[in-house]
Design a protein around this nucleic acid. Structure first.
Lengths: 138, 138
DNA sequence: TTAATTGCAAAAGCTTTGCAAACCT
DNA sequence: AGGTTTGCAAAGCTTTTGCAATTAA
C-alpha cells in the first residue's frame, strides 16, 4: 500500500539529492492529497534545510516524470497524489472537505463512449463529486 | 438560445450600472467559456470606461447571485458560463483547446448512485474529458 | 570535476481590496 | 441624499525564476 517514490526516481535516473529523498518519502507516506505547502511542512519537520522553491521544483519534476499526478479541487492550490495507485475519482465532502476516493468502471466506460461518439479518443478525465453526508448515516 | 442576463439581474434586484449592463450583455452573447480577461476585452470594445477590477467584481457578484457558473479547466484562469443552460459537462480537445459541451443522463444517474452508496447526497459535480480528435474523422 | 540542484529573494500571473470620486435609485 | 459601485493602484496568493553557492555522480 505504500508507494516507493524514492525507488521510482532512481529507476528513472533522477539525481537524488537529500531534499528529493525527503520529499519523495513524505509523498510516499501521504495517505491524503497534500498541497505544496503541506508537503513543505512535512518535509521541513524531517529536514529543515528544504526550501519551498525546491518543493515546487520537485513536485513538478515528479509530475513530469509521471510519478505524481496533480489534482485541482478548485481551491487555487495544486494537490498531489502518487500516480501508481489504481485509477480512481474523488468525492469531496462539501461540509468537511474530506476527500473520498472511488472507482466505477461503468462510468469510465461511458466516458470513453461519449468521447468516441463526439469523434474523440479519451486521453484523460477528471470527475469530482461534491456531496453532503446523508442524515441518519453519521 | 440567447441568455438575457441583464433581465435576470433586474429580476434579482441588482443595481444596474452601465458597466454591469455591458458585462451582462457580453456574457449573454458569449457562445464560448471566456475567462475574465476575455470578458474584459470584449466589454472594453463596447465601453472603454470599464476596469478589470470591475469585471472581477461583477462576475463574482453574478456567480454569487446564481446567474453565472464558474468553470476551472486547470489553466489557472477562471472561466464563466451562463447558469441557466441545461446541465452539461465539457470535453476539452487537448491539442486545440476547443471545448465541446455534452450531456449524458446515464453518467449523471451513476454519479448520484455512487454518492448514495458512499452515504452522500450529490450536491454538484465536475466532469471533464480531455481527449484527442480521432484520425480519419477530421 | 562539472553539470545539475539548491536557497534566497525577487518577480510573475491571477485575483482581491482600500479609498476617494462617481453613480444609481 | 445616501448607500453602492467604480477606477486606480497597491497588495495578496500561489507558483516560477535568476543567480551565486552547493552538491551528486
Amino acid at each position: 500500500m505504500e508507494a516507493n517514490i524514492e525507488r521510482l526516481c532512481e529507476e528513472k535516473g533522477l539525481k537524488m539529492t537529500e531534499q528529493r529523498r525527503v520529499i519523495a518519502r513524505v509523498l510516499s507516506w501521504a495517505e491524503d492529497h497534500p498541497n505544496v505547502d503541506e508537503v513543505f511542512l512535512r518535509a521541513s519537520k524531517i529536514d529543515s534545510h528544504i526550501s519551498l522553491a525546491t518543493v515546487y521544483r520537485t513536485v513538478r519534476l515528479f509530475e513530469e516524470s509521471g510519478i505524481l499526478t496533480r489534482l485541482d479541487f478548485g481551491d487555487g492550490k495544486a494537490r498531489y497524489e502518487d500516480s501508481s495507485v489504481d485509477h480512481h475519482d474523488h468525492l469531496i465532502d462539501v461540509e468537511t472537505g474530506e476527500i473520498i476516493e472511488f472507482q466505477n468502471d461503468e462510468i469510465e466506460r461511458l466516458q470513453r463512449e461519449v468521447a468516441r461518439q463526439l469523434g474523440y479518443e479519451l486521453v484523460e478525465h477528471r470527475l469530482e463529486l461534491y456531496a453532503r453526508r446523508l442524515k441518519g448515516k453519521g
